[in-house]
């Protein structure tokens, strides 16, 4: 009995102090983990947002890189961090794919985290070598269907959104291509420009530059709608209705972080994304800013995305075995 009372009191104290904590949060710098090395896409987005988020929170935002294993090491660290609100996590779509690809993933993309806020959508491009006859997605599909020769398509790696976008394209268009994975976007694009492979799916900005220089043809972005920075390029959804394969970047927190803190960080992300300078900087790296939503709404969105990508990853056969 005494034990019960004591634990009730303790729980009450903990509850009150947690509430007080959320009131005054943050009282020290907030650490945001990034699962990739400095300079990568997610890292650049995180570092672009950090100063404005810091302003909104009233405490500095520190970006901490914990690269490795496709971002899953940082996800592990974030999932098991103290849920005191001082460890947050910049995740991306790869996180939702990881459980379907890796043998051993210690976290559940939905249950181990509390959804905080969406950040941005990164556009991918379907590019072909200039000697490929097709000038748009419809022609490419036709060419792929007609010719009985082998078509290889390059991606930055097995299990990347780029790879899965390629597989989704095959399925949606009913065509055959063979996947040639590379170690990152630059080698894949180099192989395309050098004529080693006819087709590639890579992030949009570098593909756009190659297209401008006449070294490649950019047929479409793989997202559901056109890119804000380059509205002249059609979206694949215009040829294949409903097609939408683009990686997104978002903020997560360890599962047990109090709701009040999540709401504060959600606001800070929204404030940073509203900044004109941030929007411009993200636009330049091919990322379109996400529309602010409540943590709850974003949580539902994330759960839906998780299901969708799990199905795609399973069907693609990109299982590490």
């Amino acid at each position: 009995m005494r034990i019960l009372t004591a634990s009730l009191v303790l729980a009450a104290v903990a509850f009150v102090s947690a509430a007080a904590q959320a009131q005054s949060y943050p009282t020290k710098p907030v650490r945001f983990l990034v699962g990739f090395a400095p300079g990568g896409g997610v890292d650049t987005v995180a570092r672009t947002l950090a100063p404005k988020m810091g302003e909104a929170l009233g405490q500095p935002v520190v970006i901490e890189n914990k690269p490795g294993a496709g971002g899953t090491l940082a996800a592990d660290a974030a999932a098991t961090a103290d849920p005191d609100g001082y460890t947050m996590f910049f995740g991306e779509t790869g996180l939702l794919i990881a459980p379907a690809i890796y043998d051993k993933v210690n976290f559940d993309p939905i249950k181990s985290f509390a959804a905080v806020a969406p950040v941005a959508v990164v556009h991918l491009a379907l590019v072909v070598h200039p000697q490929v006859a097709a000038n748009d997605a419809a022609q490419l599909i036709k060419e792929l269907k007609e010719k009985r020769q082998r078509f290889l398509y390059g991606s930055p790696g097995v299990g990347t959104v780029q790879h899965l976008a390629g597989e989704m394209f095959k399925k949606a268009a009913g065509v055959e291509m063979e996947h040639a994975p590379f170690k990152g976007a630059a080698p894949a694009l180099t192989a395309l420009v050098g004529g080693q492979i006819p087709i590639a799916v890579v992030s949009a900005p570098p593909a756009l530059a190659q297209a401008k220089g006449g070294k490649a043809k950019l047929l479409a972005v793989t997202s559901g709608k056109r890119m804000e920075g380059a509205p002249e390029i059609p979206a694949l959804a215009e040829t294949l209705p409903g097609f939408d394969a683009a990686p997104s970047i978002f903020v997560l927190a360890p599962a047990k972080v109090p709701e009040a803190i999540i709401a504060k960080v959600n606001q800070a992300v929204a404030a940073a994304l509203a900044d004109a300078g941030v929007r411009e900087a993200l636009g330049k790296i091919g990322a379109d800013v996400a529309k602010p939503v409540t943590p709850a709404a974003f949580g539902q969105e994330l759960a839906k995305d998780f299901q969708r990508w799990t199905v795609v990853a399973r069907e693609s056969g990109a299982k590490a075995e």
Binding site: A37, G184, I285
Partner: peptide
């Protein structure tokens, strides 16, 4: 060509992009 050949140079390509210069053949 605007195609970085190692990670450090890829970062420099990133720096160009941030300044609105898309590394490429042009």
């Amino acid at each position: 060509l605007g195609l970085p050949s190692n990670p450090t140079i890829a970062l420099m390509a990133g720096a160009m992009m941030i300044h609105g210069i898309q590394p490429g053949p042009q």
